[in-house]
Structure formats: structure tokens, C-alpha cells
Design a protein around this nucleic acid. Structure first.
Length: 502
RNA sequence: GCGCCGAUAGCUCAAUUGGCAGAGCAAGUGACUCUUAAUCACUAGGUUGCAGGUUCGAUUCCUGCUCGGCGCACCA
């Protein structure tokens, strides 16, 4: 490493030594900042020169011999700094000449306006707070505000998110939005009497969703454990125990492919409310998301991805089977499996004689065919917020049968912009029925569906103690943030997304 | 997992049919006490992702690998 260090870093280390030679401590302990950059800008009044101390990273540096102009950026924004030999003193100016782009500095002085009209801090003292030994991948902004250079390589942006954030304030905005979303959800549920709880990430059995898990091993117990794929079954155990409204916002882990909508670990909100059903949960979701959009943007309509999304409630509720009839022209009451395959054939891009028989629609059970028809024909059409309700019972093993039609369940999924955002149901609380549903899942597993759920005896035991009727919700937080931030890739709403090792 | 595309200086990008690897910014030295993509002069900066192959000669053509992007599959 030492001999491989680039000449750019060598130059910075050389300056570091010169600074030490000048008696400057290159890595300070603290700084008394009185104003952020934005506060300092706002402070300016014509004819006044208020004193401020600001601190931040040097993002532009223009030396002119015995004067130096710079821009210092902090979390609030950036402000110009003007340092003049006569005003900071010769010793201090020697230090200023050794500063580099990327260094962290504190500046104390008075706010004034230059003759070209930019509000600026006229430095009285400049303090080095931390020397940057590596050059920041900083771009330049021209008079029209257009960026030149900068960090564009997406791999570097995700791998070195610290550099991405340091150089691109707009990236930080996405994560500020994310934080406001999560904080709003907490407040919303807390205000409705929900209790936030934490359930196990390491689980002896995984359940609550259809997915392949990560496995791990506990040494002292010498047993295999799974990273959770959902919090569902534990949260409902809480409901059994009399915690009538609970939620958890946490990471789930699914051992599946990665693409711009999937990261192996992702953030899920799950909430459960005793004595309510899925219609209550629909209203809860409407209230939560319309409230969120209103609180974030002060409006019910937002423009994203070239479309306008209208969040004003109530949102349309459309039955799963109706939508398939409407968009695919298939009546699932009378259509045969062959009809479904015939519909899928021209629309599905699956390789015909694929090596993996599980990928060949010819071998799919009817439920999977239906699901595929829905995915291909219906999902892309669900642009505006829409509740899809009453899913077939075979693909909903944790939901109560629908009143009046036991082939369906009281379940809904919320779709926006063609993507599923939430999944919810009237929770199945009949332990004997739950056992039968698990057993059906076991059969599906034996038939080769490795995402089918496991039979959780302890969960059934919990239901046998009696679970009140309960409405439950799962909501993908990353997906919600993607929609609200207008980001097409999940990697742009996760600070440190999963990447292959360098 | 499959397909397509990509990887060149710290960053952003060039390089003609295969013929000495370049620019802007960043960096170094000098000049400059209201500049703002500061300016001017000079200087330095490269194992062209890795490993092979073809060729007198490879950034360029071929094969394999690594990493990434996009699409498909899986899924939320």
C-alpha cells in the first residue's frame, strides 16, 4: 500500500507534515460552531456584519495569492468563505495555503456580501478540524448550476457511500426523506395506541411469508437457525398474549436474487390490531399513507416516474378474480389450467424447454398459474393506489376464509405504480384450520415448492389459547420510500446495499 | 442462475482499419489582496479490471475470469 499510494495522496501527506511543522493539529477534538451554513446565509442583513462560526468540508477552493476564496459545505448547505492575509495573519494564512479540497475546517468571522453579490463569511480565524488524506471525487458546478465531473460510477457510489454522500447533497435528501417516512409511521401507529415491539431475527423455524431463508448456526446450542423472512408469526403471538395493537419495523432477510427492487435484507413494517378485520386495515393504510404524503409534500398528488399519483382516499377496491377477468379475459370459475397456460404462453419470456422443470409452466400447479396471470396481465395496470382484495385461499395460508365464499380469503394487497406495497388480511385465528393450511403447504413443499411454509407447532399452540379476531398488515418500507422519493432502484434508498465483495 | 452492455489517470470521459494512450477537472511549482467551472505559465500523473491467445505490433480482435449496469428468472 505504502508504495502504491497515489501521488495525490502523497501530496496530501506531505502537506500534513508541513502543517504539523507549523504547529497545526491536523485532527481537532471539537469546534464551537454557532451557525450552520444556511443559518449564516439567512443572518445577512444589508449594512450589518454579524459574527458567526461555521464548520464543514471544503468543497471549492480558489487561491489568489494573498487572498483565498472557498466554499464550505455542511449538512444545511454551503457558504462562501473569504480569507485575506491581512485579516487572518501570516501564520494562519500559511496554514490556509496548505488546505486541500475535502478538508474539514471551522471558520470564524463576519457575514458580508461580496461585490459580486454572494453572502460570504469574511474569515478572522480558520481552524483545521480534519485533514482529508484522500481527494474527494468532487465535481464543479458552473454558472448554470450544471455539475461537471463528480462521482457517477454507480458501483463506486454504493461501495463508497461516504464519498457519494460527502459530494452529493441530494443523495442525503433521499435518506432524510426515508427517516421522515419511518418516523411518521411510528408516530401514526403510536398515536393509535399501537405498541412497538421487537421479535427474534434468529428463528428456529422461519415463517410468515413465502421465501427462501438465510441459514446460520448457533454454536452453543449446536443447531441451525434461520434469519427471519417475516415478523408475522411472532407478532400474532403477542396478540394472543393480550398486546392488542403491536407493530415492528425491522429487517427481514430473503435468500433470493438481487435486482433494482430486491435487496437480500430489507425493511418491513408489520402491524396487528385485535378486534379488527381487513376492511379496518384498509382504512388504516389509507389514513397512514395519505397522511404521510400530505405531511411530506403538503399535497395529495405527487409526480413520480413521469406519472401523477393521486393518494386521496378512499382508494378503489377490486377483487382479484374480477381483475383477472377484466384484464386477462379469463373467468377462473370456468377456465381450465390449459386455458391459463395458453394465455401465458405468448406473454411469458420463460425459456420453453428450460433445464429447470420448476420454471416450466407446464409443471405449475393452478395457483401458480393464476398468480402468474395476475402478475403479467393485471399488476402493470395498477398504477394509482388500488386495493386488490379477496385472494384465493390456496395462496393465502395465514388468512381467514372470506365470509360467504370459503374458496377466497379476506386478504388485500395494495398496489401503486404496478408494484405491491402492502399485504394484509383478516388473520386466521382458528387453530385447526391453521393446521390444515400448514399441512397443505407441506404438501406443496413435497411437490417441489421450496417456498411453501413450514408447520409451526408452537404457533398453532398459541392459537389454541385463543387469538382475538385480528387485522394484520405488512408494508415494504423500502418500496414505499422508492415511490415517494422517485427512485427506481432499491439501492438508492438503502445506504449500504448488498454488493459482491470488492 | 441466464442474456446484453460496460471497466482507460484521483474524478468525468476520448483514442480513426490493430500502429508512440489523450483531454477537462483534481494535483505540484510560480504569479495574482473581491474570486466563484477564478485566471495565466510551467510540471507531473497510466501494468488501459485480471489471466491467457492471435499478431511484427493489442486499449482495439478472440477465450476465460472478476466486478458493475440493464433485462429475464426468483421475489417484497
Amino acid at each position: 500500500m505504502t508504495e502504491e499510494r497515489s501521488f495525490l495522496e502523497a501530496a496530501r501527506r506531505e502537506k500534513l507534515e508541513q502543517l504539523v511543522g507549523l504547529g497545526v493539529a491536523p485532527f481537532a477534538y471539537r469546534y464551537d460552531r454557532t451557525h450552520t451554513a444556511q443559518q449564516a446565509l439567512d443572518l445577512f442583513r444589508e449594512g450589518e456584519e454579524p459574527a458567526v462560526s461555521i464548520a464543514g468540508r471544503l468543497v471549492a477552493l480558489r487561491g489568489h495569492g494573498k487572498t483565498t476564496f472557498a466554499h464550505v459545505a455542511d449538512q444545511s448547505g454551503r457558504i462562501q468563505v473569504y480569507a485575506k492575509l491581512d485579516e487572518v495573519g501570516a501564520g494562519s494564512y500559511d496554514m490556509i495555503k496548505l488546505l486541500d479540497l475535502g478538508d474539514l475546517v471551522g471558520v470564524e468571522g463576519r457575514v458580508f456580501k461580496t461585490k459580486t453579490g454572494e453572502v460570504t463569511v469574511r474569515a478572522r480565524t480558520v481552524t483545521l478540524l480534519a485533514k482529508a488524506l484522500r481527494p474527494p471525487p468532487i465535481g464543479k458546478e458552473d454558472a448554470e448550476g450544471e455539475q461537471h465531473g463528480g462521482l457517477k460510477d454507480p458501483e463506486l457510489r454504493y461501495r463508497q457511500r461516504y464519498a457519494d454522500l460527502a459530494v452529493h447533497p441530494e443523495v442525503r435528501k433521499v435518506f432524510e426523506l426515508r427517516a421522515r417516512v419511518v418516523s411518521f409511521i411510528r408516530r401514526f401507529l403510536d398515536d393509535r395506541g399501537y405498541l412497538e415491539v421487537e421479535t427474534p431475527v434468529l428463528q428456529p423455524l422461519y415463517g410468515g411469508a413465502m421465501a427462501r431463508p438465510f441459514t446460520t448456526h448457533h454454536n452453543a446450542l449446536d443447531r441451525q437457525l434461520y434469519l427471519r423472512i417475516a415478523t408475522e408469526l411472532y407478532l400474532k403471538r403477542c396478540i394472543v398474549g393480550g398486546m392488542e395493537r403491536v407493530y415492528e419495523i425491522g429487517k427481514d432477510f430473503r435468500n433470493e436474487g438481487m435486482d433494482r427492487q430486491h435487496n437480500p435484507e430489507f425493511t418491513m413494517l408489520e402491524s396487528y390490531e385485535a378486534y379488527s378485520d381487513y376492511t379496518d386495515i384498509m382504512r388504516l393504510v389509507e389514513d397512514m399513507i395519505t397522511g404521510l404524503v400530505q405531511s411530506l409534500f403538503g399535497a395529495h398528488t405527487i409526480e413520480r416516474f413521469g406519472h401523477s399519483f393521486e393518494f386521496r382516499a378512499p382508494w378503489p377496491r377490486k377483487a382479484y378474480l374480477e381483475l383477472i377477468r377484466e384484464h386477462a379475459g379469463l373467468d377462473l370459475g370456468t377456465a381450465t389450467d390449459g386455458d391459463l397456460r395458453a394465455f401465458l404462453k405468448p406473454r411469458s419470456h420463460r425459456p420453453a424447454g428450460s433445464a429447470d422443470p420448476a420454471l416450466d409452466p407446464v409443471n405449475w400447479p393452478r395457483t401458480k398459474l393464476m398468480d402468474e396471470v395476475f402478475k403479467v396481465a393485471v399488476e402493470p395496470r395498477l398504477e394509482q393506489p388500488t386495493f386488490v382484495v379477496d385472494y384465493p385461499i390456496e395462496i393465502s395460508p395465514l388468512a381467514k376464509p372470506k365470509r360467504g365464499d370459503p374458496t377466497l380469503t379476506e386478504r388485500f394487497e395494495l398496489f401503486v405504480n404496478g408494484h405491491e406495497l402492502a399485504n394484509a388480511f383478516s388473520e386466521l385465528n382458528d387453530p385447526d384450520d391453521q393446521r390444515r393450511r400448514f399441512e397443505a403447504q407441506l404438501k406443496a413443499r413435497e411437490a417441489g415448492d421450496d417456498e411453501a411454509q413450514q408447520l409451526d407447532e408452537d404457533y398453532i399452540r398459541a392459537l389454541e389459547y385463543g387469538m382475538p379476531p385480528t387485522g394484520g398488515l405488512g408494508l415494504g418500507v423500502d418500496r414505499l420510500v422508492m415511490l415517494l422519493a422517485g427512485e427506481a432502484s432499491i439501492r438508492d434508498v438503502i445506504l449500504f446495499p448488498m454488493l459482491r465483495p470488492e
